[in-house]
């Protein structure tokens, strides 16, 4: 099993996870997806959240903020969506995307797990 598949499995093992993806934000296409449902199409999520990441990076550049994005949290009424750009040399231009069911998820723990997965991943 590849490292990418392992990372996706670990992401889905986080409490409350409903969908996970590793996305290339240069192309907007997912390198791998796991989970998801009829109401959560991960291909659409990958393309759409690529715009979110790009918009944030552009805004930071325009503001003159020379920092890295650690993660982006989007809180919905029934879900959490966490976006975490991969910082390692081998994962440049990729981000992790994890959708969680709010009623079952522990946000602090989920962010902690995602940080660990991001540090381990090799693509």
């Amino acid at each position: 099993m590849s490292n990418l598949d392992l990372a996706l499995k670990s992401m889905m093992a986080v409490d409350g996870a409903v969908g996970a993806a590793v996305v290339d934000y240069n192309s907007g296409m997912a390198l791998g997806i796991l989970g998801g449902s009829k109401t959560l199409d991960l291909q659409i999520a990958a393309a759409g959240n690529t715009e979110v990441v790009r918009a944030k990076l552009r805004t930071m550049e325009q503001l003159g903020i020379k920092e890295e994005i650690e993660d982006i949290l989007i809180t919905l009424s029934a879900q959490y969506h966490i976006i975490r750009p991969i910082t390692g040399r081998k994962g440049k231009g990729l981000f992790l995307y994890l959708a969680l069911d709010r009623s079952r998820a522990n946000l602090a723990l989920a962010r902690h797990h995602l940080k660990g997965i991001e540090e381990e991943i090799e693509v």
Binding site: A47, G48, T50
Partner: peptide, 9 residues
């Protein structure tokens, strides 16, 4: 710089 994923969708 196009988002190819979105282009396809």
């Amino acid at each position: 710089g196009a988002n190819v994923g979105r282009l396809h969708l």
